[in-house]
Amino acid sequence: MIASILLHVLILLLMPPLLLGVINKTKAGFAGRLGAPLLQPYYDLARLMRKGSVFSRTTTWVFRAGPAVTLAATLVASLLIPLGNHPAIISFNGDMILFAYLFGLARFFTTSAALDTGSSFEGMGAAREVTFACLVEPTMFFIMVTLARMSKSLTLTQMLTYPSFDVWFVAGATMLLLVGALFIALLAENCRIPFDDPNTHLELTMIHEVMVLDHSGPAFGIILYAAALKLFVLGAIFVNLALPFKTGNPFINWAVFVADMFMLAVLIGVVESVMARLRLVRIPQLLVAATILSAFAMLLIVR
């Protein structure tokens, strides 16, 4: 029991940057390059933690609190998510609502920290972040209500461990719509292509990277880690819906989960390699389309 929880926490805390490594390796492969080592994100984090910091004169404590609150909210939210077949560390009725609102708290502080610099670029990024997030939010709740109705439960653990291949056979259309909507939400929330390009910093279509332009050193490291953790957490939800492999053995379950996450990372890498970033005006349309997909899923399960 304790060993299982320990393993759970270790995977939760240590694995997120690896996903970024896998995504980058996939993209390098598509581009015919060798690419950075798989563990490069860890090296980056370690280096950032040792670096000095530069603060802008206009900033206040909000700028400094931004990364801390963002990481704290993401960490607490990550405790509410089951990994594969393993129940979440903290689970109670209605934890999905808290989960969504914790990301709201993180967003409030990330965007406020961006506005604190007084830079027009960061204001731009912050405006985009809150606007697009506001369009993703209903999608997440349509998905949650649908899952709650299917699994007859109010906890994320039961909602997310409920899907299995039997469920896929019975309610395939619903699951397909859910997975589609969730994948779009996942890419948008984590600022991946086609919504945002994590590799560019100075283009005017940027969202996440431009918001954190002025953070440096350890604070930037915290932000990068929190972003990786968010990708991991939302990815874990996706994997539980899309690839619900179940075995009896807990250790095989862990291996399956890790393999699933790698598959998701490769999938994201493939999407990023074959697609271009959308024009900014198209993004809201795609997000609204995702909301409607998830609303259809709910209609299908309600009827």
Partner: peptide, 22 residues
């Protein structure tokens, strides 16, 4: 996180400048 960040930040050089104007 706040306390440990403060601790880590103190160990490396700190600088104050204008906001980066790209």
């Amino acid at each position: 996180i706040w306390v440990s960040w403060r601790f880590i930040v103190q160990r490396a050089p700190l600088a104050t400048t204008e906001t980066w104007g790209c």
